[in-house]
């Protein structure tokens, strides 16, 4: 499970904006489309290029929409996609009432 959903964010004074980096190992992809279909934020889409296995691997539509749920990492049968959290400098302060 990704680090950021292990701990509850509500008690924190500061909230980090998710800053995702999606890695796709294109030549391992077999084009099943699970990551594209089951991404809750629709970050991925099928690309036009053809990889070494003769299928269309996913490509990133909008990386900033990714919330690092890592469902794509878990559902990929071919170990071809994973998400890491980029270190971010600024932390946004939120007010608790």
């Amino acid at each position: 499970m990704p680090e950021r959903i292990r701990h509850a964010p509500l008690g924190n004074k500061k909230v980090k904006q998710p800053n995702a980096e999606v890695h796709i190992i294109t030549d391992q992809c077999k084009g099943c489309g699970f990551c594209i279909k089951f991404c809750p934020k629709k970050v991925l889409e099928e690309s036009q290029e053809i990889n070494a296995r003769g299928v269309h691997p996913p490509k990133i539509l909008d990386e900033s929409k990714c919330i690092i749920c890592s469902f794509c990492t878990a559902v990929c049968p071919d170990f071809a996609i994973f998400v890491v959290e980029k270190p971010c400098k600024e932390e946004r302060h939120i007010k608790h009432d």
Binding site: V22, H23, T26, K30, V55, F79
Partner: peptide, 25 residues
């Protein structure tokens, strides 16, 4: 997007055997 990074689970897999032979889907 950077491609030259290995998968976090790659140490749990035999690198010589991957990619596996199972069908797409």
């Amino acid at each position: 997007m950077v491609q030259e990074v290995s998968h976090p689970f790659s140490s749990y897999l035999r690198s010589a055997m991957i990619p596996h032979i199972w069908c797409s889907g």
